[in-house]
Computed example of a mutant assay.
Amino acid sequence: MTGAPKPEDALIEPWREYLAQSRRRSPHTVRAYVAAAKRLVENAGLRDWGQAAAIEGAGLRSQLAARRAEGLGNASAARELSALKAFIAFARDQAGMEGSAAPRLRGPRVKKGLPRPVTPDEATNLAAMVASSSAEDWIGARDRAVLLLLYGGGLRIAEALSLTGGDVPLGPTLSVTGKGGKQRVVPILPLVAEAVAEYVRLTPWPAGKAEPLFRGAKGGPLSQGMVQKSMARARVILGLPSTATPHALRHSFATHLLGAGADLRSLQELLGHASLGSTQIYTKVDAAAMLETYRGAHPRERD
């Protein structure tokens, strides 16, 4: 027998639907934002939009203080605050308040580190290692194909895993749906297309046009966690640092293109960044890489 719905469900479910349908946020963002709102609703005993809309900076500070006491770091606290401010703004809109902006509250300062790209050789070695160290040939081919899509096409891991059987065989370009439902076209190298074709040939699961292209061992959609674990094993074998993650392959795609002369606007389009500011960080990465090379090669630096 199903129990009666909780009063807070009247707040949480519309928030979830708004994020997923109206804002077209990624599943990961929806889960994080919904979880943050649910904690606030439960801790503050909120039961309707009016109560949620009345939350001001002091209430958010109290919520963040409780979370920090649980060990939340600066970066996570900043993300939590962003989620809560968005929820309050939504609540004020639902309550019909004029000027439904979020409370003004500055979050903790977060030092932005530069992405750590891998070299082209490291990228191809990682892809080869995940293939050779897998228990089954088709799983190795699958993981290699995913990693090459990240490095060869600059895809986010969620974008690669959202491909369906209808996307194969891959041609010279691929239409990708990224954050916010924004579509872009990325070039596909022959090596990447061949890796995906090899996976399709070996996989025991049929590539139905509406079915996930990349499958887990039991046939369900492949999870990001499995790709991350596979790459973690490979980087340990190759002696690479913990920064060599699947997302680092996307950083490497961007950094290497910039180093080869790509302009920022073109790179912005290829990466699917909403603003040029997000792309400009790679100019710093490229400069940092050149400085590191200089320091390792210049005679006076070695003295």
Rank of each mutant, 00 (worst) to 15 (best):
L60S: 00
E194D: 10
T279A: 06
T279M: 06
D48M: 10
L249H: 01
R300D: 12
P172K: 13
L267S: 01
I188Q: 01
M1P: 13
M129P: 02
E136Y: 08
V146K: 06
S175V: 15
A135P: 00
Y282S: 00
G96M: 12
R16G: 04
Y33G: 02
K179S: 05
A102C: 05
V196F: 01
R233V: 09
P212L: 00
R104L: 13
V118D: 03
L40Q: 01
N125C: 12
R25G: 11
L174M: 14
M1H: 14
A86Q: 09
K218V: 11
A35F: 11
L148T: 14
G171C: 10
S132W: 08
R116M: 02
L64K: 07
M290Q: 13
P187V: 15
E269I: 12
I188W: 15
L149M: 02
K111S: 15
L202C: 07
P190F: 00
R250S: 05
T293P: 04
R25N: 09
S82R: 14
M97H: 12
G50C: 02
L81H: 01
G96N: 13
L257R: 01
V196C: 07
S252R: 03
A274E: 06
E56A: 14
V227G: 03
G181E: 07
E17V: 14
P103V: 06
L40W: 14
A69T: 15
R142V: 04
P169D: 12
A288I: 04
P204M: 13
Y33F: 02
R104C: 09
R201A: 13
E301G: 04
P299A: 10
A274F: 06
A131T: 00
R39K: 14
R67W: 13
T255C: 00
L240N: 03
P206D: 11
V118S: 01
Y151K: 03
I12N: 01
A102N: 06
P187C: 15
A75R: 15
K182V: 01
P120W: 10
V110C: 12
A254P: 07
L191M: 11
T29P: 06
R16W: 00
L174W: 08
G225K: 11
K38S: 11
P299D: 11
R68C: 07
L238K: 07
G153F: 01
R156E: 10
L291C: 14
P172Q: 12
P206W: 10
A287T: 08
V200E: 02
V227A: 06
P27N: 03
R25H: 11
R39G: 07
L174V: 09
K218W: 15
L258Q: 00
V236M: 02
P115E: 00
A65C: 14
E42L: 15
A20H: 02
G259E: 14
R109I: 08
W138M: 05
S132K: 05
P7Y: 04
P169Q: 13
E136H: 10
I157F: 05
R302V: 10
S162D: 09
A289E: 14
S223V: 08
G71D: 14
L105D: 02
P241Q: 08
D143M: 03
P206S: 04
G59T: 09
A232Y: 11
R156F: 12
R92L: 09
R67C: 11
A244P: 05
V236T: 09
I188K: 08
G154P: 02
S275L: 10
V227K: 05
K38F: 03
L202T: 08
E269C: 12
I157K: 01
G296L: 00
Q183R: 06
A145E: 12
V130Q: 08
A128W: 03
R300F: 11
T177W: 06
